[in-house]
Design a protein around this nucleic acid. Structure first.
Lengths: 214, 214
DNA sequence: GGACACATGTAACGGGTTACATGATTTC
DNA sequence: GAAATCATGTAACCCGTTACATGTGTCC
């Protein structure tokens, strides 16, 4: 048991195992369903991580035959539950947003206007796909078909941030496309006064009141 | 010149070098000012990356003495500019949100209600700090003191997404705290009907109209 | 019986992280 | 002249990535 420092991903999986035992594939599917929206990781990672948990005595693996292959079902140990509880008591790392689209936007003057529009349009697409997935999940909840109703309160709170973020980003993308389309080209500064109005409006609307959703 | 695959971070730095030459420290400061909001990286990284760019012939380094130490000033090469332009033409990777706070929230039933509230409150703090930083930067723009006025149109568009996101997340955090405070404890499902109303409202407000800012 | 999605991994590399170190400059 | 902060890095580890490989049910 090397007892190395566990990562957030380790604890995320530990948390899922605390709910019930899962096979790796089920774990992957479950992460796609919710964790992926705020803790995105490549699926191959999910095959490595539980092994480390077993090494540390935080989970145990049971190997079941499926045809000529085997599959591994993991479950949490008492030590694992304690580790999870300790981790929950520690402060969380800062949240972060990573957007290569914005990085490319930042340097758009070295490319073309069409490229910039393409990047933002693709982001808009992505976001609409996410919205569609969320709508599907929400409908399940509304139909009372969610698999863990005793966790609904938590899940709804978490999903709401993702939903709000996605909507905000969608609105931004639509607005940004509209703006960029009006520029003669990417290097030209548009009317400075217009630009400043955007910042002024942001600052002006800067009460802590929630953004009104109609 | 090993000509390895460049990362987003490489290109981000290449982009900054396309604007003007910088010392590593200036690069770090500049990244803190904008890129950091949508491409957060540890600063130590910024000392390694330009060296790789030089190895690949995409940048060149000039070493200047400062007292008994030296500092390195980097500038872009013609090859570097071409690499940047090629990269701008490629589609961007998907954007991602990483929030350990939400991961901890997800497994809050294995901890205490106070812990959960603590996590969300800390997130709220973080977000308010970010808002304050952005307000400072916006004021600079409004006072006409931004260092690259020819880039204002790009910067304003990028900043707006960060601002909107920060505001949305702030509202969410305030709302979440309010919700959680009303729960008797983290394991208890509150009134299911109340929860479903949250989802219904989300779906109901789901036109593609932009979120109104008062 | 071929295609296709579902299911279950392994291998290898490298970017990013944290931790550490130390010189210059300003403040008091 | 001590402390704090600004400036400039180095070292080492390892998580996460991409790419690859192969088995299993099922649909037509």
């Amino acid at each position: 048991m090397p007892d190395r420092e566990l990562t957030t991903t380790s604890h995320a999986i530990l948390g899922l195992l605390a709910i019930k035992p899962w096979s790796t594939y089920e774990l992957a599917a479950q992460m796609r369903r919710n964790l992926h929206y705020f803790w995105p990781r490549a699926e191959s990672n999910l095959y490595a991580e539980p092994k480390r948990l077993v090494e540390d005595g935080l989970a145990k693996a049971r190997s079941e035959p499926v045809g000529r292959r085997r599959r591994t079902v993991y479950s949490i140990t008492a030590k694992g539950r304690r580790a999870l509880e300790r981790w929950l008591a520690e402060p969380a790392a800062e949240s972060r947003l990573e957007s290569e689209t914005l990085v490319k936007a930042m340097f758009a003057p070295y490319g073309t206007k069409e490229e910039l529009l393409g990047h933002v349009r693709r982001l808009l697409d992505e976001l609409q796909t996410t919205q569609q997935q969320l709508r599907t999940i929400f409908s399940e909840y509304l139909a009372g078909e969610d698999p863990f109703p005793e966790r609904a309160h938590i899940n709804v709170v978490c999903y709401r941030l993702i939903w709000d973020y996605t909507k905000t980003a969608t609105s931004w993308a639509a607005w940004a496309i509209d703006q960029v389309e009006r520029w003669p080209d990417v290097t030209a500064p548009t009317d400075r006064r217009e630009l400043m109005k955007v910042l002024e409006e942001a600052l002006a609307a800067d009460t802590n009141a929630p953004c009104e959703v109609r």
